[in-house]
Design a protein around this nucleic acid. Structure first.
Lengths: 344, 344
DNA sequence: TGTTAGCACTCAATTATTGCGAGTGCTAAT
DNA sequence: ATTAGCACTCGCAATAATTGAGTGCTAACA
């Protein structure tokens, strides 16, 4: 879909204006704002064209026009360019990260904090997942009686707790022994490939111990399959200030989204082409609750492998320029600091 | 403050009615509802008295009256009695707990779930704290380079993770040794009493190891001091349906409360007399954000010692009867199931 | 032929007007 | 002490009038 330069310009100004004010924009006000020296009448003609092409709609006859989702999509694809953030802001962000990157958890919540503050929307950050394939160490800790805690440590130095109840009592000594068995195994292969046969081949186990290992392995596998990566979110109330969310039902939707961490996590982690900044506008989102929102996400990496995702949820009338710039820069920062925290 | 029987009855009916309908209640409708065979005129006189005594207010001249906070307080103290829940509901709850009490985390979130569902308000549950005094085992797990995870296990079989960065690299072997040293120490005394002098007396340590122990202990102490007990909350959106929360600002307040977990946790854990069910109405709450809400809390115990708290946040026009009954029963259930999960 | 001024028209939003009804306080009768 | 009766109050909902930003169309113009 191609537009001539003037239509493009007009569309741009309309979108920018509407993003700022949330008010339908009319030909009169527009002719003042865009210095193209065109009269309102001409603009009206162009606007009529743009409406016919599906870029604009009128909330009611004889009101200004507002951009459609298609318009935002066009704007994002063809008009806007990701700007570099101002030097001052960049250094501010950088300093903030330096103060909060000694541990993984705080880094994640700080990221969410910064995101929501810089964009004035709701921020979501997905912590790195602990999965099957990069598990380098398992420590079994006796809790009480037949309850144990399994701590799984990944190659990158992340940890995940799994609490289970076993059929027999496990004391500290036994817990240590079980840990050793599993870790010995982990030297040669990955957890997901540990089968019953392999367990039975292990020499030094008593029948009771063998039985425990047989119980433990499926629990480990199962827990590592679930991608229950932690989700941090902030700035929920930021959106309350925008007029489109003065409706309590919209707010309900938003809260439902943020609370369904599982869904959110899957959605954000899903790859979509190779784009660094992914923009989903309104109904482009699969999730029913997100139909009235736009969401912009990005990912952070370690040695080229995707570790986690982060992004911003806001109205479809979102400041796509600014958010993209912010995400872009935060992405760099995260990549930088994550590689200090984790290692391959 | 004493009221004669009739005034008391009238006040009761007004409160009950207002709790149900959120509408100011007038003398006419009242005379029908309360079968005391009194005419509206008489009721009007009584109501005027009750207003003078501070139990009722009129939103505007010539409308019905609504109860004041003082009225709710009187109702809670002098009128209402905690009912036993219906048999059917009791068994329902009990069954539900049986299905969700194999682990501590799920038990907590299930409790929150049940609470919010039974009351239709917002539920909050505080998981047991892991503190200094009942720590029986510490397991140090090497994460990567100089980063380690310390798992603290309590007498009761709860665990807490503490992630720290140390000055030297710690491998699996060293982590084990450090764990042993600390656990050896724990046999005789509690963590909070471990001093520099005592560490230096330990024989088997190399200077490097000694240095690490010197670093680790303060981290442990500090982490166990913070009472960052986990907070589970559910049913945030339940309150949205009540007319008093159709205002976005009220909702903002609520979200702020629930998000400030630290504050919430302190508030709920604070003892207040020896009451089993604690009721705070509107401005009886210290927290500014809670001034428009009522909160009813209770605690669960293990061997007579308080483990955690749970409760419900709702409008001051809260169904105090029902919520109290529910909390009362849930408290018993929790005490029962917690003692299966944890042990002294 | 593209642009613009002018004009009649539309329609949401605001303000004013009215009527209704649930409620009150007061007084006089029971 | 209680109650019926009555005049009065005032929020609320419905209706009507007003305003104003915006449009589409037509005719004139460069």
């Amino acid at each position: 879909m191609e537009l001539n330069a003037r239509k493009k310009k007009i569309l741009e100004v309309i979108i920018r204006d509407y993003i700022n004010t949330a008010e339908p924009v009319g030909s009169r006000t527009l002719s003042k704002r865009c210095n193209l020296g065109i009269s309102p009448a001409t603009i009206r003609n162009e606007m009529a064209d743009l409406e016919e092409l599906g870029f604009l709609v009128q909330p009611h006859t004889s009101s200004g026009r507002i951009p459609t989702q298609q318009a935002y999509r066009y704007y994002v694809d063809e008009i806007m360019e990701i700007q570099k953030l101002e030097k001052m802001i960049r250094t501010d962000i950088h300093r903030g990260f330096l103060d909060h990157t000694t541990e993984l958890g705080p880094t994640m919540s700080h990221t969410a904090q910064v995101l929501s503050q810089l964009t004035n929307y709701t921020a979501v950050v997905l912590a790195p997942r602990v999965t099957n394939f990069n598990c380098k160490h398992v420590q079994i800790v006796s809790l009480i009686k037949n309850r144990v805690l399994m701590v799984v440590v990944t190659q990158e130095g992340m940890a995940k707790n799994i609490e289970v109840t076993l059929s027999q009592e496990v004391d500290t000594i036994l817990a240590l022994k079980l840990s050793n068995v599993i870790n010995g195994f982990l030297k040669n292969t990955v957890l997901s490939e540990m089968s019953s046969d392999l367990i039975d081949q292990i020499q030094e186990l008593s029948p009771a111990e063998s039985k425990l290992i047989h119980e433990i392995i499926p629990h480990l596998k199962k827990a590592l399959m679930e991608d229950a990566s932690e989700v941090h979110s902030t700035g929920l109330t930021n959106l309350f200030n925008y007029p489109e969310f003065s409706d309590v039902n919209k707010i309900k939707q938003l809260i439902n989204i943020v609370q369904e961490k599982q869904v959110l996590s899957e959605m954000m982690a899903s790859k979509d082409g190779n784009q660094v900044i992914r923009i989903k506008i309104g109904s482009e989102n699969d999730n029913e609750n997100l139909k009235d929102f736009s969401i912009i996400t990005s990912t952070y990496e370690l040695d080229g492998e995707m570790m986690g995702a982060f992004g911003v949820i806001g109205p479809t009338r979102m400041n796509y320029d600014n958010v993209s710039s912010v995400l872009n820069y935060i992405r760099n920062e995260l990549n930088l600091h994550i590689s200090n925290l984790l290692m391959k």
